[in-house]
Simulated assay, not measured.
Amino acid sequence: MSRGTSKAAYAMTSASLPPVTLVLGGARSGKSRFAEQLLHREARQRVYLATAEIYDEEMAERVRLHKAQRGDGWRTMEAPLDIAGVMVRETEQGDAILVDCLTLWLSNLMGAGRDIQAETAQLIAALPQLGGPVVFVANEVGLGIVPDNALARAFRDHAGRLNQRLAAAADQVFFIAAGLPLKLK
């Protein structure tokens, strides 16, 4: 068992992955690390599907730290907008994918003026086409105060609906708080 992994977390992650897993949590809750642990138990090729776009040094440093945390054995694909297409292509040979993170993907879609409902529907429609397991990471953004501006409220609402739709379609869902996993489904 790796450092920082509780016995309960190990027991929850030791079985083979189902087709779709969703890992939710707040900022710095440990959700990415937990999702990586899920995939480390897979013998197949692991693909890290990155949705972040690097616009400044602070974000570049975050990406560097994420890569170092993951360690070796990952192939990274960047897909700030078209995650559904990349997932289907990359799982054709049975590869396992970590999508990190849906919240940044949503932000990218909004910034590009894309139709969020149509993009969410396309993502959900791609799930039955996957040839290997996919673990999605997303922030749970609806636990705080109501934002004071329309853009932030729209983002929160879109994120909540996206998380609900994906959770309904997922085979298992975890919520991470303070590095501790709670299996919701």
Rank of each mutant, 00 (worst) to 15 (best):
D95L: 03
Q69D: 13
S16W: 05
Q129W: 03
A118L: 06
G113V: 05
A68K: 15
A138K: 05
K185Y: 10
G85F: 12
Q172G: 12
Q69I: 13
L39H: 00
D100W: 09
G160P: 04
P133W: 03
T120M: 04
A35N: 03
A68D: 12
F155I: 01
D157T: 05
L102W: 07
L130C: 09
E57M: 08
L38E: 00
V137F: 01
W105M: 14
D72E: 15
P133N: 08
A60P: 05
E42H: 14
L109N: 04
L106E: 09
E57H: 07
D115S: 13
H158D: 11
M59I: 11
F34P: 04
V99R: 14
A169N: 13
H158K: 03
L166A: 00
R46M: 09
E53H: 07
G71V: 04
R44V: 09
L24E: 01
F136M: 06
S32E: 03
R44H: 04
N108S: 07
L81W: 12
E36K: 04
A52Q: 12
I83T: 07
T51K: 02
V134K: 01
L182V: 05
A84M: 10
F34E: 01
R62S: 14
W105Q: 15
I145G: 10
L98D: 13
L49R: 07
W74S: 00
V99C: 15
L39G: 00
G85H: 13
A79M: 09
S16C: 04
G26N: 02
G111F: 13
S29R: 02
M1E: 11
H40T: 12
G113F: 06
D148P: 06
T21S: 15
R33D: 08
T21N: 13
S6I: 05
Q45E: 12
F34G: 00
A167T: 05
G160Y: 11
L104D: 08
V99L: 14
L127T: 06
D100A: 09
S2Q: 13
L106C: 05
E78H: 09
A60Y: 14
K67H: 15
E119I: 05
T120D: 06
V47A: 02
P19R: 11
K183N: 05
A169F: 14
G144C: 00
A178I: 07
R41V: 10
D115N: 15
R28N: 10
A154P: 06
T51D: 07
D171V: 02
K183F: 00
Q172S: 14
Q129S: 08
R46Y: 10
E36T: 12
